[in-house]
């Protein structure tokens, strides 16, 4: 190593270090404008989640407490994890015929990976994904949910 190289090494080294320090120093001075962190529990009111965000499976009910689930178990078959368990019952139609209907839609949130395959599989768009994400509970059993509301029944005309 010649003397010239020796000093040019020092010069380029110091210059590269100064360039790096310029970047961090710049951020230090502009820190109030460049913040990237969010103060999560405080910003709950202004927090906007994407509309397609997949947080949990819900069953949509209209104002008359009616859902669109026929109890066909397509979602149960589509689910890779055994998250969904559908219990069906037989209702009597006005003509006196027996008709298969939904009794209980059991949804295991603790097993769900939010893959959306059940929603894709549903022929009547009865279930959908909700953009909620605060699922912490103190007891695991609270994560096993019953999705059809009490007293709800299938909407007219849904086959």
């Amino acid at each position: 190593m010649t003397l010239k190289q020796y000093f040019s090494n020092i010069f380029t080294g110091v210059k590269s270090l100064a360039t790096g320090m310029k970047v961090t120093g710049g951020y230090f001075l502009r820190h109030h404008k460049e913040k990237i962190t969010e103060q999560y529990p405080d910003n709950r009111d202004t927090l906007v989640l994407a509309e397609r965000f997949r947080g949990e499976v819900i069953m949509t009910h209209d104002d008359n407490n009616e859902h669109a689930c026929t109890g066909c178990t397509a979602c149960e078959l589509a689910c890779p994890n055994g998250t969904i368990k559908i219990i069906t019952k037989f209702d009597l139609t006005p003509e006196g015929k027996k008709k298969k209907a939904l009794d209980t839609f059991i949804y295991h949130l603790e097993l769900c990976t939010m893959c959306n395959l059940c929603v894709e599989a549903c022929p009547t768009s009865a279930i959908t994904m909700a953009p909620t994400f605060e699922h912490s509970v103190f007891d695991r059993s609270q994560l096993i949910k019953k999705l059809n509301k009490p007293g709800s029944k299938i909407r007219e005309g849904v086959e």
Binding site: L49, A50, R52, F53, R54, T113, M114, C115, N116, L117, M129
Partner: peptide, 15 residues
């Protein structure tokens, strides 16, 4: 991740 969330509905394991 935000772009992914908007279109795919999830941030990391998009599926």
């Amino acid at each position: 991740n935000t772009i992914m969330e908007e279109t795919c509905g999830a941030r990391l394991t998009m599926n």
